[in-house]
Design a protein around this nucleic acid. Structure first.
Lengths: 240, 240
DNA sequence: CGTGCCGTTGATGCCTATCAAGGACCGTGG
DNA sequence: CCACGGTCCTTGATAGGCATCAACGGCACG
């Protein structure tokens, strides 16, 4: 049994099943309880925004269920989705005063919220949390830099293959027959805006992969990867 | 007089004129001297690489003069430059074991090198340095995310305008007649690989800006911005 | 059972890449 | 000092990949 089980029976963190990499995990049990009591729990339904571009960034959030998109909108309506956030991801721990991007729920979503000032108090007093926060920041930086390569230099097919690999790694699961299943809770338009393409191109490339028997669609929001090597070969590109 | 003047007369950091945001500035004088003695100074000439993709990341570097490009190469030779580093910038403070990108000097370059283990010892013992390192990481993350927008959604003209604005902010200076001068030490090919374009397109867009009297070329590596508002109008895009 | 949103597919066009040639600049060596 | 070669930049012609425009189909919802 993990220390986690020692939380009082009705403490929300007790049943929190976010991935082991969540920043909260850097805290021991009593501290976690303390930390958790600083904030509140938040529910969002599809399309609700957590914050807009330019909003003051005075809270940090830990996503416990659902998927959130982080995006920028240009003056003429063009949109770029900077990241999809999955359970276990943190939002808002950047040092800027205001949010550079908007955050919006893709489906039903729950988050934990803590005032940033509180969060920083904990960071100052618990080196493990500071360390975890720093590791998270550099990990995200590395991801962001990889995405520059994707957006700057890859073709539509490569982008989509890379995207499917990523989602599989972060949210993929096995069917009872061992099938390699990948959920796609976001719309085609969202995928397009994430990859710097249009929804039509995303749709076309998906059918290409389908025709090539690399993937199979179980529904609009659930695909199966039939040929992981094929996906990998397309996606890789990077490094010699 | 700043505390800096208290460094022993021949201490290398004494004459170091990197921008005030360099991480070293988080340390007080004696500590800085101590810190500085851990490493060495490094000189590179045009085209020399500091490290390759995949090299073990066991040193951190502080750029004191010159410009360095950080880039990835895909298996078929496509290249994406992830960042240009200017004096005051730090390299290699990410948490990964190996470098995800290669670093190469664009012209003559000098850097300070410190073993990462040493650096981390200082981070552990000087909270101000930890704080500065964290701020730097999140600042770079924000920049990387902005660049996703550029690479994913902006046109060639917008990318170039944004690029010129950025370089002006980071390395621009005034001529004796007040001219708004921007150095371009990197080649057109480098700019192209930074912006996700080709060198031909970069060249064409530069001549467009020239014909539109938005910029003027003093030489291949030095341009003058005649119409900052024009550049800004093109570059902005972001936010309504 | 209609209505609307989302996804797919097709036809067309545009932006930028690619291919190609000429020109400017620079360092070298005669 | 000038000729020379190489590299980088510029400019033009053409092509291709993806966007745009448009129509249709499926699915969810009222």
């Amino acid at each position: 049994m993990t220390k986690r089980a020692m939380l009082s029976k009705d403490h929300p963190c007790r049943s929190c099943d976010v991935s082991a990499e969540a920043l909260c995990r850097a805290l021991d049990v009593e501290t976690l309880a303390d930390f958790r009591n600083q904030g509140g729990r938040l529910h969002l339904t599809a399309g609700q925004t957590l914050f807009h571009q330019g909003d003051p960034a005075d809270c940090v959030f830990s996503l416990t269920s659902g998927v959130v998109k982080l995006y920028a909108i240009l003056s003429d309506g063009r949109r770029q989705i900077v990241a999809f956030l999955f359970p276990g991801d943190f939002v808002g721990f950047e040092t800027q005063q205001s949010h550079g991007f908007a955050a919006e729920a893709i489906g039903d979503t729950t988050l934990c919220r803590v005032l940033k000032r509180r969060f920083e108090w904990f960071v100052d007093h618990y080196p493990a949390l500071a360390e975890a926060r720093y590791r998270r920041a550099t990990a995200e930086l590395a991801i962001a830099q990889e995405r520059m390569v994707t957006l700057g230099r890859q073709t539509a097919a490569e982008r989509l293959a890379g995207f499917l690999s990523d989602i599989q790694r972060r949210a993929g699961f096995r069917g009872r027959d061992g099938a390699n299943l990948v959920p796609l809770p976001m719309s085609r338009g969202d995928i397009a805006d994430y990859l710097g393409l249009t929804k039509e191109t995303v749709s076309r490339e998906l059918t290409n992969l389908r025709k090539a028997r690399v993937i199979r669609s179980h529904s609009l929001t659930l695909i199966e990867i039939l040929d992981p090597r094929g996906i990998g070969a397309l996606a890789c590109g990077i490094a010699a």
